[in-house]
């Protein structure tokens, strides 16, 4: 259960291909999957816009 949830999260985050999911749920493999993806991208852009401007630095890469 937890593994399946994790796989779906990783797919939505762009980390996996749909083919790597075992029995992908219909909302990911169906005809209207593009709507979910568009919604996610809009949410991501809104979040980025809402929170950007706090800091300009990645803290791990100063070396």
């Amino acid at each position: 259960m937890l593994k399946r949830f994790r796989d779906i999260i990783e797919y939505l985050a762009g980390e996996r291909e749909i083919t790597s999911l075992h029995n992908p749920p219909s909302f990911l493999a169906g005809r209207h999957e593009w709507m979910l993806r568009t919604l996610l991208w809009i949410c991501a852009v809104v979040l980025i816009y809402a929170f950007c401007g706090q800091s300009s630095k990645f803290i791990y890469i100063d070396f």
Binding site: L12, E15, R37, W41, A44, I48, A50
Partner: peptide, 16 residues
């Protein structure tokens, strides 16, 4: 599509 999804995820992690 996969690449942009991953980039957006990274930017959300960084900013939000």
């Amino acid at each position: 599509e996969r690449g942009f999804s991953r980039i957006l995820t990274g930017l959300v992690k960084k900013f939000a």
